[in-house]
Design a protein around this nucleic acid. Structure first.
Lengths: 333, 333
DNA sequence: TTGAAAGCGCTAACAG
DNA sequence: CTGTTAGCGCTTTCAA
């Protein structure tokens, strides 16, 4: 039986409204009354009932976070960031995992929307139109996805790919393969763009070897095609794919980095632990989660804030490990 | 401006209470009225306001889930299970990550407790007394931790260890090392117990090499001591430790499984991907999450249910991969 | 600066 | 089976 505001009021010898004010607009009540109220609240271990407050303010103090698959190590990092930042502002987080099901995602989002002040959708699989329509009904912040008119926190895919190419070119690679992610993936498309642009700038060849699942098995599947391109280096859609690719190369006896260099993207914890350790473009995943909350809270406080159109762009950082090395000189085979 | 129960009532030409009943106790209202109400609700896209409902029923339709560290691949699996099962019963999940901070954990749990119907604490780091005290204030289900009088879903550590030992003994190992987890870890203690019992039964030696962080780095740190025991096989606190240990063994040029066999516990996704692939005891992590929700909901419906005392014990399953092999015959060195 | 009163949206008695 | 009434705990006018 938790204490109510009336219990506090009675104990402090004031009215409930004064208690309410003393606690949420302290500036507006007399210092000594305020002290008395605070003491009473303390003594009773009073905490306002959020449901009751929400009923009247229309705010729940809760945000929703939707991710495609927690088993993908990319997402727990983002979730941690969201959590941490949300807690700092005393907002609770509803978490939902869609299991990579774009259809279920939309339903889930709509259901969640009614219970929260705002939503963070991380790498949503839904179509653009659906996202726009959801964004019209609720305050939404996207992470790792850009949709016209919807606020978002994204990674600088182009810049990251530019760094990867610069690194490989510096090592002497002249023919580089790209193992793309899912056909519909927003980030895969942008990574490809950045790669092509950077390759063109450096005057090196970029060979795309199609689309694969963003998983270990996807990487296993992609390996042989990557090898067949004759490239001396491969960049993959993400680290999981790179690690799968590494496994298949090992099975085939193809040495990394001696015969083929491999670069991943994300810098998940596993990348450090792979053999050889994986060169990758680190994305500030946790930071992205934090910024998404920040943006969402700002939007909630001031819906007309121009962050609505702007969003945030987070830079990636090239992490060089053992999976990239010097290309053989093609003149001396 | 979402539709309220009065909007629906007006459109259906009935009173708000009838709408309420038609929607939450359909059996008790006339079929044709019910149909009319349902149609009206549908048409207006009506969804009951949970806060308002909670205010009166005292139920929020929300449970809290607390984990020590989402970055540890064990936990996302549990979370997925919790999610899935909770969604099936239309309850939302508040997720909190304590960052392995036992002190913060208690505060977080207490704060969360006021906003939810019940709590699931996964591998809590808090002390036994604190857990008991929390359990007195709220409905709590523990996962992967046993505390007298608090309902729990746990894994059969003893049984799992028995399987691991049986496997190693069958391969000819006679001296087996155990790399323990954190000193205060409930599961580490029980795994040690099971290992010792099984070793005794089989008449083989078990050597404990102390306590290490339950991480990749912990495994790196443990490797040399494990080797120094002269054991031909090592069982580690968890897969992450095993994989770190594998890395250090590789660096030292110690072949696995030829020179040393390694067994992990958990079967995280990474275990399949390690080189060599890791033999491990698979724990039904997702299942544990599902069962925890199930138990919690049962307790919520019937607080006197005797599941309170019982809890659930989930069995582990030995998964044999390449990291275990036949021991050398000590007679023929 | 404080109190009284009204009401957020819903459900639970209690009549009818 | 259905409507009326009251009230969950809180915030917010409106007066004092």
């Amino acid at each position: 039986m938790p204490a109510t505001i009336r219990d506090v009021a009675r104990l402090a010898g004031v009215s409930p409204s004064t208690v309410s004010r003393a606690l949420s607009m302290p500036a507006v009540v007399n210092a000594v009354t305020r002290a008395r109220v605070q003491a009473a609240a303390e003594q009773l271990g009073y905490a306002p009932n959020r449901a009751a407050r929400g009923l009247i303010t229309g705010r729940t103090g809760t945000i929703g976070l939707v991710v495609p698959d927690l088993a993908n190590p990319f997402f727990p990092s983002v979730v941690k960031g969201v959590q941490a930042r949300a807690r700092a502002s005393d907002v609770a987080v509803f978490l939902a995992d869609t299991d990579e099901d774009a259809t279920a995602e939309v339903g889930l989002v709509r259901a969640l929307a009614k219970q929260v002040d705002g939503l963070i959708l991380c790498s949503p699989r839904a179509g653009q139109d659906e996202l726009v329509s959801v964004a019209q009904e609720t305050t939404v912040v996207l992470v790792n996805r850009l949709v016209e008119g919807v606020p978002a926190v994204t990674f600088d895919n182009e810049g990251g790919m530019r760094q990867a190419i610069a690194h490989l070119v510096a090592l002497g690679h002249r023919r580089i393969a790209w193992v793309g992610g899912p056909q519909t993936s927003w980030s895969s498309a942008h990574r490809s763009l950045g790669l092509n642009a950077a390759a063109a700038e450096h005057g090196v060849e970029l060979v795309e070897v199609g689309h694969f699942a963003p998983t270990y098995d996807g990487g296993m599947a992609a390996a042989d095609q990557a090898v067949a391109t004759g490239a001396t280096a491969v960049v993959t859609y993400n680290d999981l794919v790179a690690i799968g690719l590494l496994a298949r190369l090992h099975a085939r006896g193809i040495a990394v980095p001696e015969a083929l260099s491999v670069v991943g993207i994300d810098d998940i914890a596993m990348s450090r632990m792979s053999r050889p350790a994986l060169t990758t473009v680190r994305l500030p995943k946790q930071k992205a989660g934090e910024m998404a909350v920040e943006l969402l809270l700002a939007l909630l406080d001031d819906p007309d804030s121009d962050s609505r159109t702007q969003g945030q762009l987070l830079l990636g950082e090239l992490i060089v490990r053992d999976s990239t090395g010097v290309a053989q000189d093609p003149a001396r085979p």
